[in-house]
Write a protein that binds this DNA or RNA. Structure first.
Length: 841
RNA sequence: GCCCGUGUGGCGGAAUGGUAGACGCAGUAGACUUAAAAUCUGCGAACCGCAAGGUUGUGGGGGUUCGAGUCCCUCCACGGGCACCA
């Protein structure tokens, strides 16, 4: 019986003691395999296990293939949960975080992942964030960081800023206080400067899933249109509009501006009703939800705006809640006949609806398709496309505007009014303004002695920390008390991970040149936009600062699906853990009292629904290898995986079966002397064809298919041992290849077996077997015989067989002959080694 | 609303336009055992048939092709992303 506990512990210790996972020097090609590093929440969940098993299997495969592999691990250690823990349990965020790191590292070590734990990084360590502060200052020097007032969600009770997600129905998630809009000075990264580059870069990322590229494309969101200005009655300043459909301008029946448009705010000074209206829009726009059901509302200002192309015509000016200040110019013209949103608004306020494209009756409004222009003066008779080009050149000729491209992407606000993050290295001087902390004074350390007893940012309230002198003029000044968004930490960690590292610089240029870009990046699809976009921005920004890093940090990306399980609820409606439930016959019952339980469909494991499986308990019961095997079996990695206890047990059985195979071989070795040349060749064929296909499956991350094939190989070996017709010398060599092939997935067992077959070194250092081409070509092949495309028989023929021979043989098959009887063959389709098809009537 | 993805046995899934259902789970029969567990071997889409074999079958409908799970059109269901984006 295989003692997995003993074996797994033994080999994990041996690997670490031998520093087997530290990248070696040498000339071999490099492979940088990286999994998205975890937030140290305290527990490893199945999602982590899936993520890291995928990466580890691939890293081990590449190592066996002779690559120098960099496969690092670390901790994305700053973040809000640490502060919440401080509030709830009166424990320091640092203590909480490092304790979690310790606990999670122990859990990860039990899986035997090929990390060099001596090279572990936590982003909350000053040795990490001091470099981040340096990068911030580099960005500042290059004008990639700026400060501006921005609107935030302010919780008046907690005295802090809330993320949009923390605002529920316009109230703070914790305090329940009505959230206010406040204008605060905040730091921004100029990601919009790179909108074009980030968009174009996507086209080069052939190793990324199409889906992720599309999501980023939409997130950046380009609109091609025209920006032009109009004269507003009674105003000296013109009003600037943006439109992607300028050709519908002759169908315009109103102008609408955003509630926070400067003109709206100016008008509100003299109009209390308008002020009220703007105020009512505020309340709603802070609450993120329910935009969909929100009713369109407008406030008629009574002011006229002059139509740009129709002399003497004016359009009424509205302030409307559906116009966003954050997109375009915050002002639009409404063409109700050809825009769903404008149509709804015009209907509500009884504004004219003027069709300007043919083929439209009142039923089909609003119409947004192609057609011929009407009611549009000089555009009449043109197609929509032609009209668009025409009106843009007309706008430019008249000097009232120009063709413009707008992006949806906003600059990245990185200020967080939080303690547990990287301090922003800035000193605010009453005379010199915002002054960078000199590099020699880095890092700006987070103070240890902070209190969470009262609301607000502890850095703000600290008795001494924020007081400093201005590095320029020496005057009394205060430190920036905001810290950086944690997404900044994860935007460059993969550069710091490059080995060997420097203490004196954020990353070593030599190491980066050697390892970057990350060859294989593996993680959850939930990071498809923010993290991956920010990291791509960082690379480009670093280049602007003179760092030699590749433009695209991740060459190939693999996004794994979620780990799912049904959720259970008892009669009282309380969630139950899977182990509290058992199946009796066809119904699910509570284990404790047998009462029936309702079962939901399988969904993402989450603590709140208790549909979680404890990773430690699984390792204890089945061993790391069996869990690794299960989590890679059956389901392709980009799909959601359904956890099943039965499947888990099946994998445990396979681990034991693999162990018994070698045991059985050893016990029968002495009697394996007779050799049947045919049987031997057949086994070697199976093996070498297996090597060929398996290598391709590993390479393309099709681990589910790799495992199916490994099982087939295993069965073939069992059959050979049972038949006793292959000499042990041949069999043993074949078994050794097989052990190397299974090692990336179940490394502990493989090490153990490697040892049993008499090898002294590590299988983890063994070389990947190569398929012998001699065994890959077959003499004969099975081909299908079809009549009118329907398969009527199968026969084995020589690979080189001619069409004539194959046809003759095929027609002689009894079943084929009877089907063909009385029919005339019109055509014979022959695809060598595949099929012969008789077309007849 | 827009964009993307998925749809194959009881279940997870496999299949360069060429034998649909590899491999696993659950099931079932047999071997071993006093018995059970474990293990090993076999069977297994549905319908008709004693069998040989036949018919149907990859969400629905249509098309291209000698041949379609695979390509094209269309509809439906589910999942995900974005969303008053001008």
């Amino acid at each position: 019986m295989y003692n997995f506990q003993e074996s797994e512990e033994k080999w994990q210790r041996a690997w670490q003691e031998a520093h087997i996972f530290t990248p070696e020097n040498g000339k071999a090609p490099c492979a940088y395999v990286l999994e998205m590093f975890p937030y140290p929440s305290g527990r490893i969940h199945m999602g982590h296990v899936r993520n890291y098993t995928i990466g580890d299997t691939f890293a081990r495969f590449k190592k066996a293939q002779g690559y120098r592999v960099l496969h690092p691990m670390g901790w994305d250690a700053f973040g809000l949960p640490a502060e919440n823990a401080a509030l709830e349990r009166n424990v320091h965020p640092r203590t909480w975080t490092y304790e979690n790191i310790k606990a999670m590292r122990l859990q990860l070590e039990r899986f035997g992942f090929s990390y060099d734990w001596t090279q572990n990084i936590a982003t909350c360590h000053p040795g990490y964030y001091k470099h981040e502060q340096k990068l911030f200052l580099d960005f500042l020097k290059q004008g990639l960081v700026y400060r501006k007032k921005a609107t935030v969600n302010w919780d008046p009770i907690e005295a802090c800023v809330l993320a949009n997600e923390q605002v529920i129905d316009g109230k703070g998630w914790r305090s329940g206080a009505v959230v206010e809009r406040r204008e605060l000075d905040q730091w921004f990264f100029k990601i919009t400067d790179f909108a074009d580059a980030l968009l174009q870069g996507l086209e080069t990322l052939s190793g990324w899933p199409e889906k992720v590229r599309t999501m980023q494309e939409h997130w950046i969101g380009r609109s091609y249109g025209v920006m032009f200005h109009l004269r507003v009655e009674g105003e000296t300043e013109p009003l600037v509009l943006f439109s992607t459909h300028p050709e519908t301008i002759f169908g315009a029946s109103f102008i609408a501006i955003a509630p926070h448009h400067p003109l709206a705010e100016k008008l509100a000074l003299q109009n209390a009703h308008l002020e009220d209206f703007i105020h009512s829009c505020n309340r709603i726009s802070t609450a993120t939800a329910d935009l969909e059901t929100m009713e369109k509302q407008g406030f008629s200002t009574g002011i006229d705006v002059h139509h740009p192309f129709i002399e003497g015509k004016t359009l009424p000016l509205y302030v409307a809640n559906f116009v966003l200040m954050t997109y375009g110019t915050g002002a639009i013209f409404g063409a109700p006949a050809h825009d769903v949103r404008d149509f709804e608004f015009a209907t509500k306020y009884a504004l004219p609806i003027i069709p300007v494209v043919t083929g439209v009756d009142s039923e089909s409004l609003p119409y947004t398709g192609e057609g011929i222009m009407i009611n549009s003066a000089f555009l009449d008779g043109k197609t929509v496309q032609e009209a668009r080009a025409c009106i843009i050149s007309e706008v430019e000729r008249m000097g009232i505007g120009q063709a413009t491209v707008f992006t949806r992407l906003r600059d990245w606000g990185v200020s967080r009014q939080r303690y547990w993050g990287c301090p922003i290295p800035i000193i605010h001087c009453p005379h010199c303004g915002a002054v960078p902390v000199p590099e020699k004074d880095l890092p700006v350390h987070l103070p240890e002695d902070v209190s969470f007893a009262s609301p607000g940012n502890p850095l703000e309230r600290h008795p001494t920390w924020k007081y400093a002198t201005c590095p320029v003029c020496g005057a009394a000044a205060v430190r920036e008390t905001d810290t950086l968004d944690t997404f900044v930490d994860s935007s460059w960690y993969f550069l710091r991970f490059c080995f060997p590292r420097l203490e004196s610089a954020p990353f070593s240029p030599d190491a980066v040149r050697q390892w970057m870009p990350v060859g294989y990046y593996i993680g959850g699809v939930e990071h498809a936009i923010l993290h991956l976009l920010y990291a791509r921005f960082f690379s480009r920004a670093l280049r602007v600062c003179g760092y030699d890093v590749p433009e695209e940090p991740f060459k190939a990306l693999f996004t794994q699906g979620m780990v799912c399980h049904p959720a259970y609820k008892d009669k009282a409606g309380a969630w139950l853990f899977p182990e509290q439930v058992e199946k009796r016959g066809d119904i699910y019952c509570k284990r404790s009292d047998g009462t029936p339980v309702t079962v939901s469909r399988s969904e993402k494991m989450s603590k709140s629904k208790k549909n979680v499986v404890d990773t430690e308990a699984m390792v204890r019961t089945y061993g790391a290898d069996a869990v690794r095997l299960f989590i890679l079996s059956d389901t392709p990695l980009d799909r959601d995986l359904e956890w099943s206890e039965e499947g888990m047990e099946g994998c445990w059985r396979f681990v034991n079966r693999a162990w018994r195979l070698v045991e059985q071989y050893k016990s029968r070795q002495a009697s394996l002397k007779l050799c049947d040349a045919h049987a031997e060749e057949a086994l070697l064929r199976t093996l070498h064809q297996g090597i060929e296909r398996l290598t391709a499956f590993y390479e393309s991350f099709q681990f589910n298919r790799a495992i199916a094939l490994i099982r087939e190989l295993t069965s073939a070996f069992y059959a050979a041992i049972e038949a006793q017709n292959v000499a042990y010398t041949v069999l043993e060599e074949a078994l050794k290849s097989w052990i190397v092939l299974i090692a990336p997935i179940i490394p502990h067992l493989a090490e153990e077996l490697w040892h049993v077959v008499g090898e002294a070194s590590f299988v983890t250092k063994a070389t990947w077997p190569e398929a012998d081409p001699a065994y890959l070509v077959e003499d004969t092949v099975e081909i299908a015989v079809q009549v009118n495309g329907k398969t009527r028989g199968i026969m084995t023929v020589s690979c080189e067989a001619s069409q004539e021979d194959v046809s003759a043989m095929a027609q002689a098959l009894p079943n084929v002959a009877s089907t063909l009887k009385g029919k005339t063959i019109e055509r014979t389709i022959f695809v060598p080694q595949k099929v012969v098809n008789f077309v007849c009537h």
